[in-house]
């Protein structure tokens, strides 16, 4: 009897949870789609009511056809690739600089306090304001765009990593010190892993800033990419391409955020939260 129980119970449980998982997925997909269907409907209706030309107010059907053209010519894919690569490198550079700076600042607290107004000052200067200077220094293209993305990624990663370091229990650091760790070994074994949930939150925020910065920078300082397409299409009286570019950006962000950033953040924060509670 006992054998029967244990043999049948898990299978029933597993079946139920699998179908529950399916319905949860399906319902979340519906919930995600409904507002967008609504948006397209409003767009179509307003186009009919306003009666403006496709140049001033491109219709959904035309934009859809434009997508077809852009995909067929390979432009959309190649521009998307270009833009995403710049974004990826920019976020990587910003994060790669911010985390060591956060660790260094945490070693020298009085110095760090002295630096905070400076950090605030630079946070306030929008990266687009830097672009004229960046172009002057590096010319048009990859470097300038990566730099402006790195710039906006840097600050949230720095702030969140530092707050993550601040939450590490003092005893963890002291334990490492009394095991023979020097300053850099404390950073490597305690501060870096201990502040990871903060860093991940910072990267997600920074990646969002960086994504917007990407488009802005590409409008000004690039000859390729989605931002370039959006800006140049208007000048060539192809407004539908501008709209197609805008939609692409929105969709890309939704995908990246849902498929990568959010799950990673959730996993880290949850896991570390569990660990911290049970220290």
């Amino acid at each position: 009897m006992v054998g029967l129980d244990t043999a049948t119970l898990p299978r029933v449980g597993a079946g139920r949870s699998r179908s529950a998982w399916f319905w949860a997925r399906a319902s979340s997909l519906v919930k995600l789609t409904v507002p967008f269907v609504f948006l397209v409907a409003v767009w179509q209706m307003s186009a009919l009511v306003l009666g403006l030309s496709n140049y001033l107010y491109p219709r959904p059907a035309l934009v859809l056809r434009t997508f077809g053209v852009l995909v067929a010519h390979g432009v959309l894919l190649s521009y998307t690739e270009t833009s995403m690569w710049r974004w990826f490198v920019g976020v990587g550079v910003g994060t790669g600089v911010a985390i060591p700076v956060a660790l260094a600042l945490s070693f020298y607290r009085p110095f760090a306090r002295m630096m905070f107004p400076l950090i605030n000052f630079f946070t306030a200067i929008v990266e687009l304001a830097w672009i004229p200077l960046f172009v002057l220094w590096f010319g048009y293209g990859f470097k300038v765009i990566v730099l402006s993305i790195a710039y906006v990624t840097f600050f949230p990663v720095l702030a969140n990593t530092m707050s993550g370091i601040g939450q590490i229990p003092k005893a963890s650091v002291q334990a490492a010190q009394t095991l023979g760790a020097n300053r850099w070994q404390v950073a490597l074994h305690v501060l870096l892993p201990g502040s990871l949930p903060g860093s991940v939150t910072g990267v997600r925020t920074g990646a969002g800033y960086g994504f917007r910065s990407l488009i802005g920078a590409e409008m000004i300082a690039a000859q390729s990419g989605l931002g370039y397409m959006i800006f140049e299409s208007r000048a060539n009286q192809l407004t539908q391409r501008t709209v197609a570019g805008m939609i692409t950006i929105g969709v890309l962000w939704l995908l990246v955020d849902r498929l990568y950033l959010r799950p990673i953040e959730k996993a880290t924060v949850e896991r570390w939260g569990l660990l911290r509670r049970a220290r």
């Binding site: 334990a175 009394t178 023979g180 570390w272």
Partner: peptide, 20 residues
């Protein structure tokens, strides 16, 4: 003069590193 491995400490709240 400072903390070192010659004086090991066992803390009340364990202070194990939770990610290891």
């Amino acid at each position: 003069t400072g903390p070192s491995r010659e004086r090991g400490v066992v803390f009340q709240d364990y202070a194990l590193l939770p990610w290891k």
